[in-house]
Simulated assay, not measured.
Amino acid sequence: MPFQPKRAHPYLYSDDEVRRLLHAALEMQYRYERGALRPRAFYCLFGLLSVSGMRLSEALNLELRDVDLAEGVLTIRGAKFGKDRLLPLHASTCKVLADYIVRRDRHWAGWDVSPYLFVSSGGRRLDQADVRRTFYALSREIGLRGTSDSHGPRLHDMRHVFATRTLVRWYQSGQDPERRLPILSAYLGHAHVADTQWYLSASPELMRESMRRLERYWENRS
């Protein structure tokens, strides 16, 4: 039979696991003074992924010009399928990013540095492979992965968590997730709403909310 690719089963992080990951990022050691911003850069990168539902590539491609903290909006340029889009940010996220940018400007004052928001110790855009290696190392450090595990939670899973939690909040607040799904789809940068609908089966909590709504529907009909 021809090979049929399957989606990886997402890992749904708990709030505590995200907090431990962010704390571990802040505690990272560095050897040279030019690496002093590295812990803060990874702290903000991982935190932004967890609260925005962005793809890792989208976050790494952000330039300073794409961050409008006065309006609380990020501009995603040339993302998947060549689309641009705007992402609104919560005030708490803007506060953390503003602090990081001040630290970034102070750290790189007088140096030739790239315009990207998240830069390496050499002043260039963070490398995706380095980000993943760092994430794997921190995951092992906090117990998300075993020391010899070759598979485990991924950074991309934070996107799943964002999507499923958004849908759960809509269910719990009595809104109609089916009607609002195109909004989430546009926010995530999906080409088709069907790509977003897949999240409906990815979370046990979300499935429970769906079942509760279905049960209420049948109770009202009886």
Rank of each mutant, 00 (worst) to 15 (best):
Pro177Leu: 11
Arg169Val: 01
Tyr30Leu: 04
Leu214Pro: 00
Arg140Cys: 06
Asp149Lys: 09
Leu181Cys: 11
Arg103Cys: 08
Ser50His: 10
Arg140Trp: 12
Pro177Glu: 11
Ala79Glu: 04
Lys95Ala: 15
Arg165Gly: 03
Leu126Gln: 07
Arg34Asn: 11
Gly110Cys: 03
Arg65Ser: 12
Gly122Tyr: 08
Met211Ser: 06
Pro2Gln: 14
Glu219Ala: 13
Arg216Met: 06
Pro153Ala: 01
Arg55Gln: 03
Val51Phe: 06
Ser114Ala: 13
Tyr171Gln: 04
Arg179Pro: 02
Arg20Asn: 13
Ser50Asp: 09
Met207Glu: 11
Leu87Asp: 07
Thr134Asn: 07
Gln128Pro: 08
Leu126Pro: 01
Ser173Ala: 15
Arg180Lys: 15
Tyr171Val: 04
Arg213Pro: 00
Tyr11Thr: 04
Asp68Trp: 03
Arg145Trp: 15
Gly174Tyr: 06
His23Asp: 14
Arg20Tyr: 11
Ala59Gly: 04
Glu63His: 11
Met158Val: 02
Ser50Ala: 15
Tyr30Thr: 06
Ile183Met: 15
Ser173Val: 02
Met207His: 00
Ile76Thr: 05
Tyr11Asn: 07
Ile142Lys: 08
Gly174Ala: 12
Gln4His: 10
Phe118Lys: 04
Leu64Ile: 10
Val131Thr: 10
Tyr30Lys: 03
Tyr13Phe: 15
Asp66Thr: 03
Arg85Ile: 07
Leu60Glu: 06
Arg169Tyr: 02
Ala41Gly: 07
Ser222Met: 09
Ala41Asp: 00
Gly189Val: 03
Asp157His: 07
Arg31Glu: 12
Arg221Tyr: 04
Arg179Ala: 15
Leu138Met: 13
Ser150Phe: 06
Tyr11His: 10
Thr164Ala: 07
Glu215His: 05
Gly174Thr: 12
Arg145Leu: 13
Asp16Pro: 00
Gly72Asn: 05
Leu26Trp: 05
Ser150Asn: 07
Val96Gly: 04
Asp99Ser: 14
Arg31Lys: 14
Gly53Pro: 06
Ser52Asn: 04
Arg104Asn: 04
Thr134Val: 08
Met158Pro: 00
Arg20Met: 13
Phe46Arg: 00
His160Cys: 02
Arg180Ala: 13
Pro204Lys: 12
Met207Asp: 01
Ala24His: 07
Leu86Tyr: 13
Trp108Pro: 00
Pro5Lys: 06
Met158His: 08
Gly174Ser: 11
Leu138Ser: 10
Leu200Ala: 07
Gly122Asn: 10
Gly53Thr: 08
Ser185Glu: 09
Tyr171His: 13
Arg77Met: 03
Val193Trp: 03
Ala98Pro: 03
Asp112Ser: 13
Met211Arg: 13
Leu12Arg: 10
Gly123Glu: 01
Gly152Leu: 08
